[in-house]
Design a protein around this nucleic acid. Sequence first.
RNA 1: GUGAGUGUAGCUCAAUUGGCAGAGCAUUGGACUGUGGUUCCAAUGGUUGGGGGUUCAAGUCCCCUCACUCACCCCA
Length: 387
Amino acid sequence: MIYQKPKGTRDLFGFELERLETVNSIARRFFKKSGYQELKIPWVIDKRVYVLIPEGTASVWRAFIENKLSLPARFLYIGSMFRKERPQKGRYREFEQIGIELLGESQPFYDAEIIEQAKRFLEIIGAYDFFIEINSIGCPKCRSAYKNILKSYLKPHMNTICTDCQRRFGKNFLRIFDCKEETCQKIYDRAPMITDHLCLECREHYAHVKKYLGIFKVDSKENKKLVRGLDYYTRTVFEFKQKGLGAQDTIIAGGRYDLLMKELGGSDIPCLGWAMGPERMLLALPQDVPQLEDRTSIYIAVIGERYVETMLKVRDTLVKNDFICVMAAPEDSIKDQLRQANRLKVDYVILYGEDEAEKGMYAIKDMKTGEQHSIVPDQLLQFLKKS
RNA sequence: GUGAGUGUAGCUCAAUUGGCAGAGCAUUGGACUGUGGUUCCAAUGGUUGGGGGUUCAAGUCCCCUCACUCACCCCA
């Protein structure tokens, strides 16, 4: 072994890859029909060193500016993202993400719409047992006023909260609400919440978002402790959480970030979006969801090299007609060929050798029942299609 | 970065207070020379993750290291 795969990465193949790709193609179909255009963004975000993208939003913005695209714009991106944390259940260092970004829309209608689209998408895939949490974290105006209120509430408790929270207090203020310590949570339960300290505009925006969620018939639960660590988030934040997962149970997270564009040095453009971790979601689903396309598979057993050419034509016809088709090397014994066919779990085997050539027929064997009969070449496609 | 748990055949796992490294499945061959899967018989398969130590003797006990898993942390 020359080298092993880096920690937190995986080789995807077989069923696992198949269902991930199925989710991706459903996403493409669904969101393109909803007016989104796909954007393929580079994994590398630095000229000299290989710095890998941790999320898609900033890159989508960069692409928007660099390509001088016009507003309003809806983008879909699908691909690998990277994080450096130690892996655990539902958290890999290289992981898949499906995300959408909606640029240039400030109406609360759209906050509700992207939540509804996420929900419909999950339903199409066959996900269930998830719930939606929403909150509003206001704008810089109400948030800075609120931060002072929260700070003065927390001051007397500084020695009671855990060391992690003390660190968060200085670095990532609102994130203290995410703490898993019970003693900390007891203190935060009685803390003033940002949702109750919104300015008039933010309050109205939030009320409209909830109104539209009602019109869209999307059930959601308000979680006043749901926050974001970064300052460019404004107003609406939401998460979809999946039951039956471990500590990492958020399958979709998103919100509104009207200040991001300014932070990146651009003009003032509002933006909404979310990102989904399909692998994490699939962890909680039964193996047969989403439903895979079930194609009939055929193995062509050839007995004698001089029949290869005839069977190559059959193979090409089958592939053109969307069957899965594998051909055997004529040097292998018929026993080996059938054994291979069995291992590949194919539905049918076409056998062709001296006997069949003389009669001008194909022998076709149903691998489930073991039945075998002769069929004239012209009827092959018809026979396979009705099966 | 921190903590806990697990590493034995290709896979899933056994192995008593330290006492001959095993089973099932898989693989290969045969029974069966143009018929897989089922059945029967046989064979192959291991520096017990790696290194060091204690001991007459280590899969088992001690130390180090690597990998995986879960949790903390982080979460744009």
